[in-house]
């Protein structure tokens, strides 16, 4: 759905348009925040903060400078950094918060998913938790938010080359964490 007409209406003061924008972006913002912070309560708080700021200040958004999602991601990343600064994150693994049943959709995973989940619990997400916040931002923005280097630079307030370096460093660290052997096995499966 094209959000430009909604954004313009919201900029003119249309509350209904603002509500529609909230509905469109709340899930994405929440999940981005969760990817950045790894804690559901913190992610909820950050997403609420980011959406509140973005919608109440939507007249500041300039259509010609960036997409609305990039602008919103920038606010979300900034709020997540603030949150991280204010709080010493508890050393709870992502597997723990992912396991909070009441906040997970009614989803019954199959046997393969169970295997993957165990793998994830023991592999990717624990590796992600060990990354520095900036490298984690790079991974989440690239692989979850599907941002380009340019957008990553804008959101993380750094140059394009810095964004590229952070991403490659983050991937490298994750590869080491996950173990080359496992990756090689997966690679052979992929190219076969």
């Amino acid at each position: 759905m094209d959000d430009v007409p909604l954004i313009r209406r919201a900029q003119e003061g249309d509350e209904r348009a603002a509500r529609l924008l909230f509905d469109m972006y709340q899930l994405r913002t929440y999940r981005l925040a969760l990817g950045l912070l790894g804690d559901t309560a913190d992610a909820e708080e950050v997403a609420q903060d980011a959406l509140t700021y973005a919608l109440l200040n939507i007249y500041r958004y300039k259509e010609h400078l960036s997409s609305f999602s990039t602008w919103l991601h920038t606010i979300t990343v900034s709020r997540a950094r603030d949150k991280r600064r204010r709080k010493v994150l508890p050393s709870i693994s992502m597997a723990q918060w992912l396991g909070m049943g009441n906040q997970i959709r009614d989803y019954e995973p199959g046997p393969e998913a169970h295997i993957m989940r165990r793998e994830v619990e023991g592999g990717l997400l624990s590796a992600l938790n060990k990354l520095s916040p900036k490298l984690r931002e790079a991974i989440v923005l690239r692989f979850y938010a599907d941002c380009t280097y340019k957008e990553m630079g804008e959101i993380m307030d750094c140059s394009l080359n810095t964004a590229r370096s952070r991403l490659r460093l983050a991937i490298e660290k994750l590869r080491v964490q996950l173990g080359e052997e496992q990756v090689r096995w997966l690679a052979s499966e992929t190219i076969r």
Binding site: Q26, L27, Y30, R31, L34, G35, T40, A43, E44, E45, A47, Q48, L51, M94, L98, N102, Q103, I104, R105, Y107, A113, M116, V120, G123, L124, L125, I139, V140, F143, Y144
Partner: peptide, 15 residues
């Protein structure tokens, strides 16, 4: 891994 896990999660009513 990111997609699979993050897409399973939904925000609570506070949002």
């Amino acid at each position: 891994g990111l997609f699979q896990k993050l897409d399973e999660v939904a925000p609570g009513p506070r949002l």
